[in-house]
Computed example of a mutant assay.
Amino acid sequence: MNHDLRTLADRAELNDLLLHMGRALDEHTFDDLNDVLTPDATGSTRNGSGTGRDILIAQIEAGNKDHTRLLHRFSSVLIKVDGDTATIRAYITALTGTAESLVPTSRRYGLMRDKAVRTPDGWRISELRVEPVFVVDEDTVGA
Score class of each variant (00 low, 15 high):
116 A>R: 01
68 T>D: 15
108 R>A: 13
107 R>W: 12
30 F>I: 06
77 V>H: 03
85 T>P: 02
90 A>I: 07
84 D>W: 02
137 D>E: 13
70 L>M: 05
70 L>R: 00
87 T>P: 05
45 T>N: 06
126 S>P: 03
16 D>T: 11
135 V>E: 12
4 D>P: 05
93 T>F: 06
34 N>Q: 13
31 D>T: 09
69 R>S: 07
67 H>F: 15
93 T>A: 09
53 R>A: 00
21 M>W: 15
42 T>A: 07
123 W>K: 00
4 D>M: 08
3 H>D: 15
28 H>T: 03
52 G>H: 03
60 I>L: 05
13 E>Q: 10
8 L>C: 09
46 R>I: 13
101 S>D: 02
51 T>G: 08
43 G>E: 04
65 K>T: 13
121 D>N: 11
4 D>H: 09
142 G>Q: 06
2 N>K: 11
92 I>Q: 10
48 G>R: 06
87 T>I: 10
26 D>Q: 02
53 R>M: 05
84 D>C: 04
12 A>W: 08
97 G>D: 02
95 L>I: 04
114 D>Q: 05
2 N>R: 11
96 T>F: 13
26 D>K: 04
74 F>W: 05
97 G>R: 02
55 I>W: 08
139 D>E: 14
67 H>G: 12
30 F>M: 00
44 S>V: 13
104 P>Q: 05
67 H>P: 11
108 R>P: 05
37 L>N: 00
35 D>I: 06
113 R>M: 13
60 I>P: 01
60 I>M: 06
15 N>P: 10
68 T>F: 15
131 E>G: 09
129 R>E: 09
26 D>A: 01
